[in-house]
């Protein structure tokens, strides 16, 4: 369970002025819940995710995970970034094995688990490739496998499909739902796509433009397992998408 309590973040800009990126965010995410944070670019939604990850300290407020305050990154919270952030000097297999080996898992065991994960993200046969030889979608699959390898109970996904083309994006969304519906990790998912947020989430947090505040939290009461085609025809899905689109338009 993630508890975000009155978190604000200020940055110092070049001219020495202070910029309030996010203001007074309070949010509780239950175990096994899939929550999306939706907002226009520059609303600080990624910053909020980095604060939960422990990569960036908040200026005010606090975050606790499972009752313990967040003071830095930890293997209970696995990030997936829009930029993939794969290690270019390691092969696909090496990337996925890295976290396990650093945690002291033996070589053979780490390799076995890495292979299984790569199979799960449909990348069998690419183990000895370097990241630069893969397409964007494949890179993101590797990054997801790398994070899942050390079994975090929470996934922090920072616009993970934002750099991908529309087709690849849909396929990865389908795969992610499938993976998530199987083992129900807690997911905090940052995106600026309304359809993506509604399709994937249990709840959608809509944020305001700078400074980022929570505007509204929408519960997505669609049944699971979700199937894209059925959902697209479903009235309730359409209503959610339209309602949230209106909410965001109203900020302009």
């Amino acid at each position: 369970m993630i508890a975000i309590d009155a978190v604000s973040k200020e940055f110092e800009t070049k001219g020495g002025r202070r910029h309030l990126a996010i203001d007074d965010i309070g949010l509780a995410v239950a175990d096994g819940e899939f929550v999306s944070i939706l907002g226009p670019s520059g609303c600080g939604k990624s910053t909020l995710l980095y604060i939960v990850g422990g990569f960036v300290p908040p200026s005010r407020g606090s975050v606790t995970v499972g009752g313990k305050p967040v003071t830095g990154p930890g293997p209970d919270r696995g990030p997936v970034f829009q930029e993939f952030a794969l290690f270019p000097w390691k092969t696909v297999l090496g990337n996925v094995m890295y976290g396990l080996q650093q945690q002291g898992v033996g070589r053979t065991q780490a390799r076995e688990r890495a292979r299984a994960l790569l199979a799960m993200v449909h990348l069998e046969g690419y183990e000895s490739f370097y990241p630069k030889e893969l397409s964007g979608g494949m890179k993101q699959r590797v990054a997801i496998a790398r994070t899942l390898a050390y079994r975090p109970s929470i996934l922090l996904m920072d616009e993970p499909f934002g750099a991908l083309d529309a087709h690849t994006r849909t396929r990865l969304q389908n795969d992610l739902t499938e993976i998530w519906e199987r083992d129900r990790k807690t997911v905090l998912f940052v995106t600026h796509s309304v359809e993506e947020a509604v399709f994937l989430s249990d709840r959608v947090v809509v944020m305001t433009r700078s400074p980022g505040r929570i505007k509204e939290i929408v519960t997505i009461d669609l049944p699971r397992p979700r199937d894209r085609v059925t959902l697209l025809l479903e009235r309730r899905y359409q209503d959610h998408v339209v309602a949230i689109e209106r909410m965001m338009d109203a900020q302009e």
């Binding site: 990850g53 990154p73 990030p79 970034f81």
Partner: peptide, 18 residues
């Protein structure tokens, strides 16, 4: 170095020095 590379490692439980 892109900070997210280091973050990816730190999130896996790797110490700052390592």
């Amino acid at each position: 170095v892109e900070p997210k590379l280091a973050w990816s490692a730190r999130a896996a439980g790797v110490s700052p020095a390592r």
